[in-house]
Every structure is written in C-alpha cells, then in structure tokens.
Amino acid sequence: MSLVKILEIALRTGRVTRRYPVEEPLLTPEFRGSIEVDPSKCWGCGACTKVCPSNALTLTPSGKGLVLEYFVGRCVFCGMCAEVCPAKAITVTKKFELASKNLRDLRSRVVHEVLRCSVCGAPITAEAEVRAVVKVSPITEEYVALCPRCRKERFTKSVALRIGASSGPS
C-alpha cells in the first residue's frame, strides 16, 4: 500500500536533481560567494582585515610595500569586509567554483606603495590611504607626509617656541 503511494509521489515529482555542471547551478540572487578587491579603489587601510572573522584578509608589510592579501581558502563568505570597506573596493561575487590544483590561485594580492616620512624616512601608511584622507579632511599634504613621531616632535617644538621656553639642547 505504502509502495503504491510513494510511487505516485515519485512519478508526479519527476527528476529534481539538476544536471550540474551541464545545467546552470541553482543560485539565488542573495547568494554570497568569494570576494573581489578592486586594486584601483583599495586604500590599503586594513579595515577589512580587522573585521574578517577567519583571517582570510591580511595586511602585511612586504619589501617596500604593503600587501593586502585575500586567501580564499580561509574565507567564510560572510561579506563583512565589503560592508566595512570605506572605499567600496570590495564586491561580493557569486563565484563558488573555487577549487584549484594550484594553491597560488587561491591567493590574490593588492600591493600598495608606502608613504615615507619626509623628515626621517620611516614608513607611515599606504599612499592611497593618505591621498583619500587628504581629499576628505582639511589637513595639508605637508603635515600628512610626516610620521607620527615627527609630527609629535614638531608639535612640541612649536608649543615650546610659543611659550618661550628653550627647545632643549639641540
């Protein structure tokens, strides 16, 4: 009896399995796949690396530059990075066929030039970030080109001059 009933259900339902990859995969419009970082927009600020729960995004100094690396092998496809990116450089794609025989294919990098202090030459931060900051805030490029230590020094010196104290043994 139950056999007849289940047969009826089966026949009426027909085949439900999609013949992937011959047929299109079943993806809803909301699906979150791997991310893409647009190098022309990225500032190299590292906000995405701070919010990434799985360490898939990392910002590390390398040689003379600063490298933002996305390792899809660790990605959990949450898309939090795209939400916090101040430059709107990250897009969440619908890509999910990410397997590769080459580990290198799983890593993508954005290399940033690093701005160096105009006085002492110490690395400050990614040039792109400095350019973006100058655009939106009322600070001079000359001030931005100083590292935090040199800024502090210049500030204490100017305060010292204003109150007439000696600037110390020079």
């Binding site: 289940i6 259900i9 089966a10 339902t13 439900v16 079943l26 993806l27 809803t28 419009p29 909301e30 699906f31 979150r32 959990v76 496809f77 949450c78 898309g79």
Partner: peptide, 29 residues
C-alpha cells in the same frame, strides 16, 4: 531509503529558501 530521499528532496526547498533569505544555505552569517 526511499523515505530518506524524499525527506531530503523536500528539505531542499527549505535550503534554497534559507539562501534566498540570508545569502547562504547554511552558516547564514
């Protein structure tokens, strides 16, 4: 096993719905 297959076939509607609501079939995030 027939019951198993049909239960999971019905479940598939729910999985697709979950993806449409949250962006992922599981670990909705």
């Amino acid at each position: 096993d027939v019951g198993f297959m049909h239960a999971w076939r019905i479940r598939e509607h729910v999985m697709v719905l979950a993806e449409y609501l949250t962006g992922s079939r599981k670990t909705y995030g």
